[in-house]
Design a protein around this nucleic acid. Structure first.
Lengths: 300, 300
DNA sequence: CATTGTGTCTTTAATGATAAAAACCACTGG
DNA sequence: CCAGTGGTTTTTATCATTAAAGACACAATG
């Protein structure tokens, strides 16, 4: 077979919903308008309109198409809820790799994985290719893929790379002019840190998200697409790691918040050297936590 | 249809070559040996052997297969020279993007490009996906790809990113222990610089390659897969850029060699600050050259 | 009886055919 | 001349098909 007609089915049902709000005998909007409204091409609209005509819901041709009967629930087309999107796939895949210790060097089976993640094999193939640069995956010489795995080596190198980027961002931050919007954002996120510190006993889980936002604020002052791209990978990995290392979570998070605050203070003092040193320290503990949580995870 | 039988055809011909060296009536090596020798699976070997049997070149079965007649030129299978490899594709694609000013935002047509580069559409798809992280290409919402293009913005950000990585490498370099192999390599490449300087009038074209090797030596002391990955992209882009900017090439290259030498000297003195400053300067001129060459290219 | 080799069968991924969707163009009624 | 529609061409996502790889069991040979 060929392409799925998911788009047609969805549009068909959306059109039924739209028609239900119209009075009997009302004229139909133009195809271009409908297409814009549903966010699909005219071709799909035309296919839908034709089907509605055949089902006796619409009548007439050309510009004279009118609603002849209200659609019934029965007219709806069933659409099998399949295929997940790219982001969902990314999340599930990383979850699979990071949560279950898939051993390094495992040969990946396209067909099987595609079934497992309910995506067409083709989509998985493309996804794996796009992951190529992240160093988690390798193309084998004569077909197939190999998972290089989320090893300790990988974590160390990732952390080091993160440090290089982030220290650079710190240096850039202190050089910003006073009126730059980042300073306001920094004050704001400082307040959020203090506020979370107040209710840390209860809401320490909220830190993961705050951490992500803090680091992405720091890096946002370096407007560079390569940095941004890597930042995505890094925050993804660290985000997942937060999800499975539960030991000492409350205390770890509180300590991290305090480290963040010292970095923020140094930045606000425009003390480049101090900020750099603080950030270095923070990133080092972060790396240690990542590594120790990996060890714990392997023993489990 | 399905997979091409290129591997079968190649193996068939290779086998003919091999048989030509044997005397008539000689016994055949085992399938496993043959497979190892030709670097293919046993399945292919078996298919080939069966065909050779049908063509009367081999006779017998099981372990008793013997050469009954020498292969003639006519026995060779023709193989259409198609499909280029991945590296070749990468080279051709970048060449196409960088050499002809493909305007930013162009929608890429898979089928057409696949024909143009003589690869199966599928392979192109995968290639484009793998380029996703490099920021040259974007997936459009509902199918298709868009070329973001090698714009001035892109070049600036690439250069800045390169600078971040390379300054970090410089700092790491000066911290290396005396007996590290990189010092020997540095002395060696210094000699090569001096040697090229002697014959610069004639061989200034050789600089492009030397430049690549110099920068990759600097970066090699940071053993980090992410750095290495990006280094590949960077050197690719700079390599191509060298190919089309011919203005002042001789003088540019001579100046660059001298800059390299000052960096090397500072490194050998273990003078971190000086080395960093020199490298900063060199990378700045490199960036300027890249930008100016792009401007010149656009006007052409 | 261990080792090496072959025959058979299963699994897997690359490819072309194909259908869905998008884009294009020409025509028509107002 | 413009908004809208009908017809047609392009183009991409999906699927069936087939080459190739690999696994397993049995046979032969020393």
């Amino acid at each position: 077979m060929a392409r799925t007609d998911t788009r047609f089915r969805q549009s068909h049902n959306a059109m039924l919903d739209m028609l239900s709000t119209l009075p009997l005998g009302a004229g139909l909007p133009s195809e271009v308008q409908l297409a814009a409204q549903l966010g699909v091409s005219r071709t799909v609209i035309r296919a839908v309109v034709q089907k509605l005509g055949a089902d006796g819901i619409l009548q007439g041709s050309g510009r004279e198409k009118r609603l002849t009967r209200l659609p019934k629930p029965k007219d709806r087309l069933s659409l099998r809820e399949d295929y997940i999107g790219r982001d969902e796939l990314e999340a599930r895949f990383l979850d699979w790799v990071l949560r279950f210790d898939v051993p390094a060097g495992t040969a990946l089976n396209i067909t099987q994985l595609a079934r497992q993640f309910t995506v067409p094999p083709h989509a998985l193939q493309e996804f794996l290719a796009s992951l190529g640069q992240s160093g988690l995956i390798e193309r084998r010489a004569r077909g197939g893929w190999r998972l290089l795995g989320f090893t300790a080596d990988y974590a160390v190198e990732l952390s080091e790379f993160r440090q290089v980027l982030e220290l650079n961002a710190i240096r850039a931050f202190t050089a910003l002019p006073k009126e730059h919007a980042a300073w306001t954002a920094l004050s704001k996120i400082r307040a959020e840190h203090l506020e979370l510190l107040d209710r840390i006993d209860r809401d320490f889980h909220d830190f993961s998200r705050l951490d992500g936002r803090f680091h992405s604020l720091i890096n946002s002052v370096v407007s560079n697409r390569f940095v941004a791209e890597f930042q995505k990978v890094i925050s993804l990995i660290f985000h997942y790691h937060y999800q499975w290392d539960k030991t000492m979570e409350r205390y770890r998070n509180e300590a991290a918040i305090r480290e963040h605050l010292t970095i923020i203070a140094a930045l606000q003092d425009r003390d480049t050297l101090s900020a750099e040193a603080r950030a270095r320290g923070h990133l080092a503990t972060s790396k240690e936590t990542l590594l120790s949580s990996m060890r714990g995870h392997h023993l489990a």
